[in-house]
Amino acid sequence: MSSDADKHECSCGKGLTRRQFLTSAGAGALIVTASGHLGKDQEASAAVIKSGEETKITLLINGKQFQMLVEPRWSLLYVLREELGFTATKEGCGRGECGACTVLIDGMPRYACMTLAVEAEGVEITTVEGLMKGEDLGPVQKAFVEHDAFQCGYCTPGQIMAVEGLLRKEPDPTVGQIRQGVSGNLCRCGAYPHIIDAARRAAEMKKSGAL
């Protein structure tokens, strides 16, 4: 359901019709060979990208490389959702005040809306899609299902990534640490008690080796 091939086709199809440049280039996002050398040559990247111009970047998302053209001002959130079709990552404020766009960057929860896409090169980006094994849910996702840790579900991918990030750092968190860990993710439906239960459950599942 969340295969990268689907995402690729989706964004490509859109890219082809969307901008003059992409029409002539004939491709939006391309998947290049899986992992390997990453990170830009610093000298080369010291060049200025002019406002409104697009530059080619490579992002490593959920273990796959994506090459695309971006403007300097484009946020990682915009690129994930609108260019690549990773729509699990939500936009709730666009200004680092709600947490719906939380993704892991090198394993740590951060706001994709407050990260420029050009700054996201050379790091590992993980979205909710990246927690899945094929169509199977990861432990944090399973725990969220079990404990009904959401209502409308809109903040949920962000909450899940916050919990995932917390558990990668602290595999056996206390309730206090969990409350802290998700305190950068607003849930207007107020599912916090169930989110906290789910995080504890996810820690147990991870400890018992569930993947």
Partner: peptide, 16 residues
Amino acid sequence: MTPGFSYRRAASIKDA
């Protein structure tokens, strides 16, 4: 949404 800007990636403090 943010207005446009140019972007420069500094390689060193001097460059910045």
